[in-house]
Simulated assay, not measured.
Amino acid sequence: MAHGEVLEFEEYVRTRQDALLRSARRLVPDPVDAQDLLQTALVRTYGRWDGIADKRLADAYLRRVMINTRTEWWRARKLEEVPTEQLPDASVEDSTEQHADRALLMDIMKVLAPKQRSVVVLRHWEQMSTEETAAALGMSAGTVKSTLHRALARLRQELESRDREELVARALEREERERCAA
């Protein structure tokens, strides 16, 4: 790569790194994994920087590399579940409602398949149009729409399921308190 292109890439990373890291954080819930994802995508993009003719599309290219990388990681993961009788208490890092909502959303996003998660992230967090999302993911606009529809339905179903579980748990707690008070 020519010296001028190296400087151009460095400038691009310097100006766009915060936005790109936010995108990575939306693709993977762990902040350290998000940084690793972005770094991996930047390394892969650096090797192909001179091949990106229209640098205005660099964000889309890099997001696509992040999505592909995340998908590779997801496919290569080893599922090591440890059965336990007692589930650990869920913890919320911050007591504010906004942080709790964000944590819940990031948690329920885990139920989505990688393709569905990518579509939701690009359409709703990155606020890309259907056509931009289709181009970034290499699929048709119709596929984006149907994938988004199914993903949002799955998220709604998961939220409703968790709401029902919470209502049942509260009712059981109330019954237990009333029984102990009697």
Rank of each mutant, 00 (worst) to 15 (best):
E175Q: 12
S140D: 13
Q35M: 03
M128F: 08
E93T: 12
G51H: 12
K110F: 00
M106F: 07
A34I: 07
E165A: 15
I108W: 02
W74V: 09
E11P: 04
E11Q: 15
E178V: 04
A58E: 07
A103H: 03
L172M: 12
A103G: 05
D54H: 01
V120P: 14
A171H: 12
D50Q: 03
A136N: 15
E160Q: 12
R150W: 10
M128G: 05
R102L: 08
E126I: 03
R48Q: 06
L137V: 01
T15V: 15
T40R: 03
E5V: 01
T15W: 08
P31N: 07
T45Q: 05
L122D: 08
S140E: 13
L37H: 04
A151M: 00
L37C: 06
E173Q: 13
V111W: 05
A135N: 12
A90D: 09
R70Y: 09
V111D: 08
S129A: 04
E158H: 02
S23M: 15
W49R: 02
E165R: 10
S129F: 06
R179N: 01
Q35L: 02
V120H: 15
R16E: 14
E97H: 12
M128D: 08
A24R: 01
L38F: 04
A90L: 14
R102M: 03
L159W: 09
R117A: 08
T71S: 08
I108D: 00
D18P: 00
P31W: 07
P83Q: 09
T130R: 13
G47C: 01
R56Y: 08
P29N: 02
Q39E: 01
A181K: 03
R179I: 05
D94P: 00
V119N: 10
R150V: 01
S23W: 13
G51R: 14
A60Y: 02
M109L: 13
Q17P: 00
L105K: 07
W74H: 10
D50T: 09
G4P: 00
R179K: 07
R22C: 03
V92M: 07
P31I: 04
L104S: 04
S161A: 00
D54N: 05
T45W: 03
V121M: 13
A181V: 06
E85Y: 14
Q127T: 11
A53N: 05
D89F: 14
